Simulated assay, not measured.
Amino acid sequence: MRNFFIFIKCELGKTYEVASHLVDLVEETRQVHSVSGTYDLLAQFAVEKEADIGRFVTTKIQTIPGIKDTQTIICFNAFTSDKGLGEA
């Protein structure tokens, strides 16, 4: 699996709706956090190694109603015992 994070800026008043949509309807979602600063949410996703992350972001995330802007952060390595796979 390939892990990556997306900072998400929401339209005013839409942060909770966007977070719910990510958690309930996007199966690749691992975590969603509300954050302070330029963006409203930080979401973690995991896709198959062969997946096109750019296409995933533009078709499955940026099209969600209430999302105004995104910034994607690609992960290279996980320095945890589970290698970022969520296994203990």
Rank of each mutant, 00 (worst) to 15 (best):
V47S: 02
F5N: 12
R55V: 07
K83L: 13
H21L: 11
V57N: 01
A51V: 00
T80D: 13
P65M: 00
A78G: 15
T58N: 08
T15M: 14
A43P: 08
N3E: 12
G86S: 13
S36K: 04
D82E: 10
V32T: 14
F56Y: 08
L12D: 10
V35C: 10
D40M: 06
G84M: 07
L22P: 11
G66T: 05
C75I: 06
D24T: 08
E17K: 08
Q71D: 04
R55D: 03
K9A: 12
E28A: 13
K60R: 15
I74K: 08
R55Y: 04
Q44R: 09
L41H: 09
L85G: 07
Q62L: 02
T59L: 05
E28Y: 10
M1H: 04
S20K: 14
R30W: 00
F56E: 00
E11Q: 04
N77D: 15
E17W: 03
S81Q: 15
K49A: 03
L12Y: 11
Q31N: 11
K49I: 00
T29Q: 00
I67G: 01
K68S: 14
F56C: 00
I8P: 06
V47W: 03
F56W: 01
H33E: 14
G86A: 05
L41I: 12
E27A: 11
Q44I: 01
E27T: 07
E11D: 09
A78I: 03
K68R: 08
F56P: 00
K14L: 08
S36F: 12
T58C: 09
G37W: 02
K68M: 09
A88E: 15
T72H: 13
Q62E: 05
D82Y: 15
S20H: 09
E50I: 06
F79N: 13
E87S: 11
V26K: 08
A88D: 15
T15E: 11
A88K: 15
E17H: 10
A88F: 14
I64T: 07
F4E: 10
C75L: 04
I53V: 11
T58V: 08
I73Q: 03
V35Y: 11
Q31D: 13
A51W: 00
R55K: 13
Y16Q: 09
A51T: 04
I74M: 10
